[in-house]
């Protein structure tokens, strides 16, 4: 019969303004999950290359001059790393809180309030992140 018209991408992420709570929760959960995976591997790569390089000499260790220690100290002295740490905390906290929300959804508990529990996860994440800023940024300047 007549050919039909496919409206392509406009139907999907182009319409992000129209997404509802559950859709945002899903997007954020996927995003934070993969950020955590990415962080985990970077973390392993950095530490596993720094550890064998650590000096066996107690004197160097005491002076805090072995490569492991200096690697960490250098990283922590960068403002960018401090900011990324705050971001990592935010991502982890949201993933955990929304993960608990998803657990409830899987158990069929409180499905009528799924949007509220998403907003609660967001607000709590925000609060915890803001509260963590002094700790993470302390001594960065």
């Amino acid at each position: 019969m007549s050919q039909s018209y496919n409206r392509g991408l406009i139907e999907d992420f182009g319409r992000w303004r129209e997404f509802s709570a559950g859709m945002w929760a899903w997007i954020f959960h996927k995003f934070t999950g993969w950020v955590l995976v990415g962080y985990l591997f970077t973390h392993i790569a950095v530490l596993s290359t720094a550890i064998p390089a650590a000096s066996q000499d107690p004197a160097t260790l005491a002076a805090g001059e072995d490569i492991y220690t200096t690697t960490i100290v250098t990283l922590e002295s960068l403002l960018l790393v401090r900011i990324l740490e705050v971001g990592l905390l935010a991502v982890a906290v949201f993933h955990i809180l929304n993960g608990l929300r998803l657990l409830l959804v899987d158990l069929g508990i409180g499905l009528d309030s799924q949007d509220k529990s998403f907003y609660a996860s967001l607000i709590l994440t925000g609060a915890i992140t803001v509260a963590s800023v002094p700790t993470f940024i302390a001594g960065a300047f």
Binding site: M23, A25, D106, D115
Partner: peptide, 16 residues
């Protein structure tokens, strides 16, 4: 569990 279907169902069926 994006709840999109439940949100739009005109017969208020709790699809999710």
């Amino acid at each position: 569990t994006q709840f999109s279907c439940t949100n739009v169902c005109p017969k208020d069926i709790p699809l999710t």
